[in-house]
Nucleic acid binder design. Structure first.
Lengths: 316, 316
DNA sequence: GTAAAATATGAAATGGGTTTCAGGTCAAGA
DNA sequence: TCTTGACCTGAAACCCATTTCATATTTTAC
């Protein structure tokens, strides 16, 4: 394929002029501009993006680190990121880590390699200590709140949202409240959850805390355990509407009616929750994604809190 | 930041040798290799990916053209594409068009600009005539079947799957069968649907065909129309389990029991369908995505048919 | 009428790698 | 001893654009 020099030669101008035409600079005479465009058309020329990126030193590409690519939460986040990116003429690459530390570092290296202008981390495998150094090479925006000044944050006040969810259950008279999470870790999110739980209910009963839940089937399995406990919970706070849906379906199958016999609160306002009438804490992940993308594009390391809302339906 | 020349100078070798070290070529003596690696470490050097892409003439990046980024079907497709891409060390960029023709051409131009090695088109706004020329610059794989030899296909035999779905309803004694679609177009998919319908039921009643459905709420709205028709359908074939779920929920609200009063078949085996017990035609979109990605990576323009399956639950 | 500003153009430096080709050393096999 | 092949190395060409700087010509402003 032709390159800019070929065009220049055939049009009888310098490469500088061709470059100017390509970039719509003013200060190119009409006749030369026309001539160059004609040749470009004739040769079916298109500039090489790698060369452009090389000289410009930027790629207008944003990486999105996610743990798994088949997770409804991250779909919402991606959705938000894409909304903003397309609008601002950026491109998004999706980087699923499976919580593999080396993989995550490999992806972060794309900043250092100048393949990406910025990176959004939705969930991380490495400690911040291992991640921070990469912020020298491009803005990193996190979905976890972190106080480190180099890192931008588009985050949710989870402690507060969990507090609200538990309080809602307490107000309805529930004292035996179980909850589920996805990862079996000491993530901040889980810590907030436990702290909020203790804040509202005082004591924390280990059997009421189930982990490793992320889909409907996990919800069914969780319910199977929780609802046959000698001291069975009367309410469950699930980490997603699909899990909540699974819980509700299993409950129904053993003749426990919602909310009469079992109150359920889900999270993220997913489609299944609408269908099953599940009350949910909507953390507005699409907005979180949009905000994160905006921070990257404006090269801002601000900490932006995105408001959540509780959507009351019929499961509480 | 340092470049390969700086490394070469400080290590006392040529850039060729540094390049060899970076690419793990053999034929570099141990002492030079060690020396080079030491300097690379000291200077915290990382090669510039744009420069590499420029010389290599490839980027190991694959584009995925989708209409909207908030659609469950495309999430499944993306999931599959990512599975394969990560495995083969490729990167995926997501390109939502909103069915805008210019946008789509802009994305296809990324092949010509050598920004992408290949492109997967899940749904297109332009005619093939406008798309084909871009296959000169990188393999295009389509999710629609097309006979054009340049285009690879990872497709579903929709005509056959629709036939099966309608036949299932007919076998259960249904003669008044409605159906929904997403886009109001003459897409191949819709044509197959209508042809299959006529094949099974003979006559085609326009009021039984509703378009513009893609989420649960659309399903509710569709049901609201269909179920109050003077000659109301006894079965509905929806274009997705969320739409099907919406239909079922509305039906229930007006005291129509499934499957007694209304049979429903959904598509794509989405989470909500599990919850509501909706019989579904699973087109295995994740596999379709994986297969599409594989074709791109192997630069194969084969036409691969991915098998579908009907998952019977309780809505028929 | 003249100085300043706007317009127009190109040579050459720059960004940072890969790869071909040519040339060398050294050890194993005939 | 000589040939052959494996091993090692670097100069220079190549990939393809952007941008600075220098220069020249017109306009405009006073």
């Amino acid at each position: 394929m032709a390159n800019i020099h070929d065009i220049a030669k055939l049009a009888g101008v310098s490469v500088t002029t061709v470059s100017r035409v390509l970039n719509n600079h003013k200060y190119v005479s009409d006749d030369k501009r026309t001539k160059v465009l004609t040749i470009i058309n004739e040769l079916n020329y298109a500039p090489n993006q790698s060369a452009i990126d090389l000289t410009r030193g930027e790629t207008r590409m944003i990486g999105l680190i996610i743990p798994y690519n088949n997770n409804a939460c991250f779909d919402q986040l991606l959705n938000g990121v894409l909304n903003k990116a397309v609008e601002m003429d950026y491109t998004v690459i999706v980087l699923p880590t499976q919580y593999n530390k080396e993989k995550e570092i490999e992806y972060l290296s794309k900043l250092k390699n100048k393949q990406l202008d910025g990176m959004i981390i939705t969930s991380r495998a490495n400690d911040w200590d291992a991640i921070i150094p990469y912020s020298d090479y491009g803005l990193i925006v996190s979905y976890d709140y972190t106080s480190h000044p180099a890192i931008g944050c588009s985050y949710i006040d989870r402690y507060s949202s969990y507090l609200d969810a538990f309080q809602l259950l307490k107000d309805k008279g529930h004292t035996h409240v179980a909850f589920t999470t996805a990862r079996e870790t000491e993530s901040m999110s889980t810590q907030h959850l436990i702290t909020a739980y203790k804040e509202v209910f005082g004591t924390f009963i280990p059997e009421y805390y189930l982990t490793g839940c992320s889909c409907l089937d996990d919800g069914v399995a969780a319910a199977k355990k929780l609802l046959h406990l000698p001291n069975r919970p009367t309410a469950i706070f699930a980490n997603g509407d699909e899990v909540a849906g699974g819980i509700q379906l299993y409950a129904k199958s053993i003749n426990l009616e919602t909310p009469r016999d079992l109150a359920i609160i889900g999270q993220e306002n997913q489609p299944i929750g609408v269908g099953l009438g599940i009350t949910t804490v909507d953390h507005q992940l699409t907005k979180v994604g949009e905000q994160a993308c905006e921070l990257i594009i404006h090269k801002s390391n601000q900490k932006v809190k995105v408001p959540y809302q509780i959507i009351q339906r019929t499961s509480v």
